[in-house]
Design a protein around this nucleic acid. Structure first.
Length: 577
RNA sequence: GCGCCCGUAGCUCAGCGGAUAGAGCAUCAGACUUCGAAUCUGAGGGUCGGGGGUUCGAGUCCCUCCGGGCGCGCCA
């Protein structure tokens, strides 16, 4: 776990501000927020604060004077080496190079800890993502949610949360019924019966394949007598169950190809079955009872509605006039389960932007149904929306729909370009950015020109240098090594250390704002800094063994941090390419 | 019509209210007897969609217009 350097810098400035007021260099002020940032230009130091610019107005002094008064009181020491004031009123701080070099030893001391911080305090946090209906294979668009959710979960774990990854399996409701009907038709067609897929059924080829695979394995055992009426929907349907099981297996395998594994596959249908812990009632019934008791339910027009107390939303139907619950109703029960029964402190649902209209009502309903049992239900639910992926093939837009059956599956994409490129590409853009995925471009892309290979190459090169050093008989850069990191004085060496030092604060930023896409930019910059160091500094040099051993430590540290950045993205960190 | 998101270099996109707006790709010019050339060095390329406003300071915040995406009470 790493204490954030920025916080130490901020504390030093706060103390200086306090000190300047005590000595009368500045008038008494109400507590001001101290903004600390990383300047873009190296000549502006490692950290900068604009606090003087903000205060100048209220104390009616020139910004530069205020900055100077604060700067004069900043204590330099082992961490802060120099303080400068720059127009129009910035305070620029430089960290001690000696301290920076020592951080290399810290990175080596606990390779798995670098980049881990503790803003989560072990709070129980769930990231729910993908959650695509198990009525068809995953699409390219699902891949974006998959990659985003998985990287976010990794980032939050690095930030000190106790993270669970969950996939909500919609194995109940309308879509499953349509899936079952279609599957029955295809299954019967396989045995030569003259039946048609209903108009609202799934037209896709994959469901024919599924029916044939089942028929090949089990024969005719699910065949109903010819012309028999369809079984009532509340009866178990062995063919549908088998079909769903196989679809889920395929989804699980597809996600496995991307290196994504869930802790929990949560069944929607399980919300409807009785539970001993709830006195034999289902989660669904319990949640609905809570809603009624809380006065959140109104009945009108023959249906049951969730009465919104928020201005953002209107009333929404939870039980249709037909008596059937809506998707929203089971969703309320699901979130009741998350907060009231499983007691998560925070839940982040990663949703496609087409679900934007559900955000307000789901939050309101969650607070209403679970707020009494778990206060976190009031504000602990957040939705991370990602814009949908538009596929193109050349200039042509590819329309996707499970129902019409024109599909570009995630599996096809991953098999074509590989999991690492898929993940990196999906992660490169912010969730808010619309994304065009040109299949022609993606599949023809020269791997040599891919940013992900560049980063992986830097990692592999670290490994290669370490191998060469071992062959030359130089001792390994272990934490016990007596190599002196203070010999790292070249500009490219310090720049590389600077890049490594940024990771903990980046993790904090990503975890706070739920923005894992910064990882790609960071990984690229880190790889560039390493490559520049490599170009400027000979590491394995028998004529200068002490310096070689110091640079080996730096190389090993760079490998560790590159591996961590790649690991958070879920991208492989190979020792050879 | 209303709500959310987007508009930044030729292309794809970063950019926590701060200093001369960045990267990758593409283009052009150079660099391998040297630890991995899947590399490096350099160059060109921008009225940050338009217009107002707030601020010491706006690509970033507010208003408005234009363009694109998604959604809008008994689908999921």
């Amino acid at each position: 776990m790493t204490q954030l350097v920025r916080d130490a810098v901020r504390a030093a400035i706060a103390a200086a501000l306090d000190d300047a007021q005590q000595h009368g260099a500045l008038p008494r002020l109400p507590g001001a927020e101290i903004a600390v940032e990383r300047p873009q230009k190296p000549e502006h130091g490692d950290y900068a604060s604009s606090v003087a610019l903000r205060l100048a107005g209220t104390v009616k002094r020139k910004p530069l004077d205020v900055a100077q008064a604060i700067a004069d009181s900043i204590q330099t020491g082992p961490l802060i080496d120099a303080v400068e004031v720059a127009p129009p009123g910035f305070i620029n701080l430089r960290l001690s190079p000696h301290w920076k070099r020592e951080q290399v030893n810290d990175i080596l001391a606990d390779p798995h800890a670098w980049g881990s911080i503790d803003i989560g305090h072990g709070q129980k946090l769930q990231v729910e993502f993908v959650s695509a209906n198990p009525t068809g294979p995953l699409q390219v668009g699902n891949g974006r949610g998959a990659v985003l959710g998985d990287a976010l979960a990794s980032v939050l774990a690095a930030a000190g949360y106790n993270v669970e990854r969950e996939y909500y399996v919609n194995d109940a409701g309308t879509q499953v019924r349509v899936f079952a009907e279609t599957l029955h038709v295809r299954y019967q067609q396989h045995f030569g019966r003259d039946v048609e897929v209903p108009a609202e059924g799934y037209q896709g080829r994959y469901i024919v394949d599924l029916a044939e695979a089942i028929a090949a394995d089990v024969g005719q055992q699910y065949l109903q007598p010819e012309g028999a009426p369809p079984p009532p929907s509340d009866q178990p349907d062995p063919l549908a169950t088998e079909g769903l099981r196989r679809m889920l297996d395929q989804i699980r395998a597809d996600l496995g190809l991307l290196g994504i594994n869930f802790d929990q596959w949560f069944s929607e249908a399980s919300l409807l079955s009785p539970r001993d812990a709830l006195d034999g009632r289902s989660v669904y019934d319990t949640a609905m009872a809570r809603l009624r008791e809380g006065g959140h339910v109104v009945e009108k027009e023959g249906a049951v509605w969730f009465a919104s107390s928020s201005d953002d939303d209107k009333d929404n139907v939870i039980v249709r006039s037909s008596g059937e619950p809506t998707y929203f109703a089971t969703d309320i029960a699901y979130h009741f389960d998350k907060f009231a029964l499983r007691r998560f402190d925070r839940v982040i649902n990663v949703w496609g932007a087409d679900h934007q209209g559900h955000v307000a009502r789901t939050k309101a309903a969650t607070a209403a149904v679970a707020g009494a049992a778990n206060a976190q239900a009031e504000h602990g639910l957040e939705m991370l929306l990602y814009q949908l992926v538009h596929l193109r093939r050349g200039g042509e837009r590819v329309r996707m729909s499970k129902r019409t059956g024109e599909l570009v599956t995630l599996r096809e994409l991953v098999q074509e370009v590989g999991p690492d490129v898929t993940r990196y590409f999906m992660l490169e853009r912010s969730a808010d950015a619309q994304m065009d995925f040109d299949l022609e471009l993606a599949t023809s892309q020269d791997p040599k020109q891919n940013p992900v290979s560049y980063v992986q190459y830097a990692h592999a090169r670290c490994a290669s240098i370490l191998r060469t050093a071992a062959a030359e008989g130089l001792d390994a850069p272990t934490p016990e090594s007596t190599a002196d990191v203070q010999l790292l004085v070249e500009p490219t060496e310090i720049a590389l250390i600077d890049a490594m030092l940024r990771l903990p604060e980046l993790v904090e930023l990503m975890a706070t704002k739920l923005e894992p896409h910064h990882l790609t930019t960071y990984a690229l910059e880190l790889a560039q800094q390493f490559t520049q160091f490599y170009g400027a500094c000979r590491v394995v040099d028998p004529s200068a063994p002490d310096r070689s051993r110091a640079r080996l430590k730096l190389t090993r540290a760079a490998q560790i941090v590159l591996a961590r950045a790649l690991g958070l993205m879920g991208v492989a960190a190979p020792d050879e390419m």
